[in-house]
Amino acid sequence: MTSLTVNAGSVWQGGLRKRTFMAVVGLLTVALFVSACSSGPTGDTVAGMSSTYTSSDKTVSEYAPADRGEPVEFEGTTDTGIVVSNEDYAGQVLVVNFWYAACGPCRAEAPDLRELHEEYQDKGVKFLGVNVYDEPETALAFARKYGITYPSVIDKDDGDVRLAFAGHAPPSAVPTTLVLDKAGRVAARFVGQIQAPSSLAAIIRKLTEEA
Protein backbone atom coordinates (compact mmCIF):
# COMPACT_ATOMS: atom_id res chain seq x y z
CA MET A 1 0.00 0.00 0.00
CA THR A 2 2.82 2.37 0.82
CA SER A 3 4.43 1.75 -2.57
CA LEU A 4 1.16 2.44 -4.38
CA THR A 5 0.70 5.68 -2.47
CA VAL A 6 4.18 6.89 -3.33
CA ASN A 7 3.79 6.02 -7.01
CA ALA A 8 0.43 7.79 -7.26
CA GLY A 9 1.89 10.83 -5.60
CA SER A 10 4.77 10.83 -8.05
CA VAL A 11 2.38 10.68 -11.00
CA TRP A 12 0.28 13.54 -9.57
CA GLN A 13 3.38 15.64 -8.95
CA GLY A 14 4.64 14.94 -12.46
CA GLY A 15 1.32 16.00 -13.95
CA LEU A 16 1.21 19.13 -11.82
CA ARG A 17 4.76 20.01 -12.84
CA LYS A 18 3.90 19.67 -16.52
CA ARG A 19 0.66 21.70 -16.18
CA THR A 20 2.52 24.42 -14.32
CA PHE A 21 5.26 24.45 -16.95
CA MET A 22 2.74 24.70 -19.80
CA ALA A 23 0.91 27.54 -18.05
CA VAL A 24 4.18 29.45 -17.79
CA VAL A 25 4.99 28.66 -21.42
CA GLY A 26 1.60 29.99 -22.48
CA LEU A 27 2.15 33.29 -20.72
CA LEU A 28 5.67 33.60 -22.07
CA THR A 29 4.51 32.83 -25.62
CA VAL A 30 2.14 35.78 -25.44
CA ALA A 31 5.03 37.91 -24.21
CA LEU A 32 7.12 36.72 -27.15
CA PHE A 33 4.59 38.06 -29.65
CA VAL A 34 4.32 41.35 -27.83
CA SER A 35 8.06 41.89 -27.86
CA ALA A 36 8.86 39.96 -31.07
CA CYS A 37 11.79 37.71 -30.09
CA SER A 38 14.31 37.63 -27.32
CA SER A 39 17.71 37.82 -28.96
CA GLY A 40 19.74 39.14 -26.06
CA PRO A 41 21.17 37.51 -22.95
CA THR A 42 18.77 36.13 -20.36
CA GLY A 43 21.11 36.30 -17.39
CA ASP A 44 19.95 32.88 -16.15
CA THR A 45 22.19 29.99 -15.17
CA VAL A 46 22.06 26.40 -16.34
CA ALA A 47 20.51 24.20 -13.69
CA GLY A 48 22.93 21.73 -12.15
CA MET A 49 25.85 22.81 -14.33
CA SER A 50 28.81 25.10 -13.87
CA SER A 51 30.06 27.01 -16.90
CA THR A 52 33.52 26.22 -18.18
CA TYR A 53 33.24 29.28 -20.38
CA THR A 54 30.60 32.00 -20.64
CA SER A 55 30.87 34.99 -22.95
CA SER A 56 30.85 38.45 -21.40
CA ASP A 57 27.27 39.06 -22.55
CA LYS A 58 26.20 35.59 -21.33
CA THR A 59 24.84 34.60 -24.73
CA VAL A 60 27.37 31.79 -25.31
CA SER A 61 28.27 29.11 -22.79
CA GLU A 62 30.47 26.06 -23.27
CA TYR A 63 30.87 23.23 -20.75
CA ALA A 64 33.73 20.83 -20.12
CA PRO A 65 32.80 17.12 -20.04
CA ALA A 66 32.80 17.06 -16.24
CA ASP A 67 30.30 19.95 -16.12
CA ARG A 68 27.69 18.71 -18.60
CA GLY A 69 25.29 17.03 -16.23
CA GLU A 70 23.07 14.12 -17.24
CA PRO A 71 22.02 13.14 -20.78
CA VAL A 72 18.77 14.75 -21.89
CA GLU A 73 15.90 12.39 -22.66
CA PHE A 74 13.22 13.71 -25.01
CA GLU A 75 10.60 12.64 -27.51
CA GLY A 76 8.41 14.54 -29.96
CA THR A 77 6.66 14.47 -33.33
CA THR A 78 8.21 16.31 -36.26
CA ASP A 79 6.56 18.57 -38.81
CA THR A 80 6.27 15.55 -41.13
CA GLY A 81 4.61 13.38 -38.48
CA ILE A 82 7.62 11.27 -37.52
CA VAL A 83 8.27 10.50 -33.85
CA VAL A 84 11.87 11.16 -32.82
CA SER A 85 13.66 10.83 -29.51
CA ASN A 86 17.12 11.15 -28.00
CA GLU A 87 17.70 7.48 -28.84
CA ASP A 88 17.66 8.33 -32.57
CA TYR A 89 20.76 10.50 -32.04
CA ALA A 90 22.75 8.21 -29.75
CA GLY A 91 26.49 8.44 -30.38
CA GLN A 92 26.16 11.57 -32.53
CA VAL A 93 26.63 15.26 -31.93
CA LEU A 94 23.21 16.94 -31.99
CA VAL A 95 22.43 20.62 -32.56
CA VAL A 96 18.99 21.56 -31.20
CA ASN A 97 17.51 24.91 -32.28
CA PHE A 98 14.40 26.36 -30.59
CA TRP A 99 12.51 28.65 -32.98
CA TYR A 100 9.24 29.76 -34.58
CA ALA A 101 8.49 31.28 -37.98
CA ALA A 102 7.53 34.84 -36.96
CA CYS A 103 10.73 35.29 -34.93
CA GLY A 104 13.05 37.77 -36.66
CA PRO A 105 16.32 36.43 -35.21
CA CYS A 106 15.18 32.88 -36.09
CA ARG A 107 14.81 33.94 -39.73
CA ALA A 108 18.15 35.74 -39.67
CA GLU A 109 20.10 32.73 -38.41
CA ALA A 110 18.28 30.13 -40.55
CA PRO A 111 20.74 30.37 -43.52
CA ASP A 112 23.70 29.88 -41.18
CA LEU A 113 22.12 26.82 -39.57
CA ARG A 114 21.33 25.43 -43.01
CA GLU A 115 24.94 25.83 -44.14
CA LEU A 116 26.33 24.25 -40.97
CA HIS A 117 23.93 21.34 -41.31
CA GLU A 118 24.98 20.78 -44.91
CA GLU A 119 28.65 20.95 -43.96
CA TYR A 120 28.52 18.52 -41.04
CA GLN A 121 25.63 16.15 -41.76
CA ASP A 122 28.00 13.52 -43.17
CA LYS A 123 30.43 13.90 -40.27
CA GLY A 124 28.38 12.38 -37.46
CA VAL A 125 26.44 15.59 -36.68
CA LYS A 126 22.65 15.93 -36.68
CA PHE A 127 20.42 19.00 -36.46
CA LEU A 128 16.92 19.15 -34.95
CA GLY A 129 14.60 22.12 -34.73
CA VAL A 130 12.04 22.56 -31.96
CA ASN A 131 9.19 24.79 -33.11
CA VAL A 132 7.56 26.31 -30.04
CA TYR A 133 4.55 28.04 -31.61
CA ASP A 134 3.60 27.01 -35.16
CA GLU A 135 1.49 24.33 -36.82
CA PRO A 136 3.32 21.78 -39.03
CA GLU A 137 2.29 23.55 -42.26
CA THR A 138 3.89 26.81 -41.13
CA ALA A 139 7.07 25.07 -40.03
CA LEU A 140 7.34 23.23 -43.36
CA ALA A 141 6.77 26.43 -45.32
CA PHE A 142 9.61 28.05 -43.35
CA ALA A 143 11.87 25.09 -44.12
CA ARG A 144 11.10 25.31 -47.85
CA LYS A 145 11.73 29.05 -47.91
CA TYR A 146 15.16 28.76 -46.28
CA GLY A 147 16.19 25.43 -47.80
CA ILE A 148 16.32 23.63 -44.44
CA THR A 149 16.24 19.86 -44.75
CA TYR A 150 16.56 18.77 -41.12
CA PRO A 151 13.32 18.11 -39.19
CA SER A 152 11.63 20.20 -36.52
CA VAL A 153 9.61 18.86 -33.63
CA ILE A 154 6.23 20.60 -33.30
CA ASP A 155 6.10 21.39 -29.58
CA LYS A 156 3.35 24.05 -29.37
CA ASP A 157 0.66 21.91 -27.74
CA ASP A 158 2.24 19.62 -25.16
CA GLY A 159 5.62 21.30 -24.62
CA ASP A 160 7.26 17.95 -23.86
CA VAL A 161 10.56 18.78 -25.55
CA ARG A 162 10.77 22.20 -23.92
CA LEU A 163 10.10 20.51 -20.60
CA ALA A 164 12.90 18.01 -21.23
CA PHE A 165 15.33 20.87 -21.92
CA ALA A 166 13.88 23.28 -19.34
CA GLY A 167 17.10 23.42 -17.30
CA HIS A 168 19.08 24.42 -20.38
CA ALA A 169 16.77 26.43 -22.68
CA PRO A 170 14.37 28.82 -20.92
CA PRO A 171 11.03 28.86 -22.80
CA SER A 172 11.14 32.66 -23.07
CA ALA A 173 14.49 32.72 -24.89
CA VAL A 174 13.83 32.15 -28.59
CA PRO A 175 15.92 31.41 -30.50
CA THR A 176 18.16 29.27 -28.33
CA THR A 177 20.57 26.71 -29.76
CA LEU A 178 22.00 23.81 -27.76
CA VAL A 179 24.79 21.46 -28.80
CA LEU A 180 24.69 17.97 -27.30
CA ASP A 181 27.75 15.74 -27.14
CA LYS A 182 27.80 12.11 -28.26
CA ALA A 183 26.49 11.05 -24.85
CA GLY A 184 23.44 13.31 -25.19
CA ARG A 185 24.62 15.93 -22.66
CA VAL A 186 24.40 19.68 -23.25
CA ALA A 187 27.93 20.81 -24.12
CA ALA A 188 27.19 24.35 -25.32
CA ARG A 189 24.40 26.91 -25.44
CA PHE A 190 23.75 29.96 -27.64
CA VAL A 191 21.03 32.30 -26.35
CA GLY A 192 19.52 34.53 -29.02
CA GLN A 193 20.56 34.75 -32.65
CA ILE A 194 23.87 33.06 -33.40
CA GLN A 195 26.10 36.02 -34.19
CA ALA A 196 29.21 34.04 -35.09
CA PRO A 197 28.47 30.78 -36.93
CA SER A 198 32.20 30.05 -36.81
CA SER A 199 31.93 29.70 -33.02
CA LEU A 200 29.20 27.08 -33.38
CA ALA A 201 31.25 25.32 -36.05
CA ALA A 202 34.29 25.24 -33.76
CA ILE A 203 32.27 23.64 -30.96
CA ILE A 204 30.79 21.09 -33.36
CA ARG A 205 34.25 20.10 -34.59
CA LYS A 206 35.56 19.81 -31.05
CA LEU A 207 32.69 17.53 -30.02
CA THR A 208 33.08 15.27 -33.05
CA GLU A 209 36.68 14.69 -32.01
CA GLU A 210 35.80 13.72 -28.44
CA ALA A 211 36.01 10.03 -27.61
Rank of each mutant, 00 (worst) to 15 (best):
S55G: 07
S55D: 09
T59S: 04
A66C: 10
D67Q: 13
D67V: 14
R68C: 15
E70A: 04
P71M: 11
E73A: 14
E73N: 15
T77L: 02
T77R: 01
G81M: 06
V84H: 07
N86G: 05
E87Q: 15
E87L: 08
E87P: 00
E87H: 14
A90L: 11
Q92E: 15
L94S: 09
V95H: 03
F98K: 11
Y100N: 07
A101L: 02
C103V: 13
G104N: 03
G104H: 08
P105C: 12
P105L: 12
R107V: 00
E109Y: 00
D112G: 03
D112S: 04
E115V: 00
H117L: 00
E118Y: 02
Q121T: 14
D122Q: 07
D122Y: 10
K123N: 13
K123V: 00
V125Y: 00
V125R: 02
F127T: 00
L128H: 07
G129D: 02
V132D: 11
V132Y: 12
Y133V: 15
T138C: 09
T138Q: 07
F142S: 05
A143C: 03
Y146N: 10
G147S: 03
G147V: 08
T149R: 08
T149I: 10
T149A: 03
Y150S: 06
S152F: 01
V153G: 07
G159K: 15
P170N: 09
P171H: 08
P171G: 07
S172R: 15
A173Q: 14
P175S: 06
L178E: 08
V179L: 12
L180A: 00
D181H: 05
A183E: 14
R185Y: 05
R185E: 00
V186I: 11
V186P: 04
V186C: 08
V186M: 06
A187F: 12
R189G: 10
G192H: 11
Q193L: 01
I194W: 01
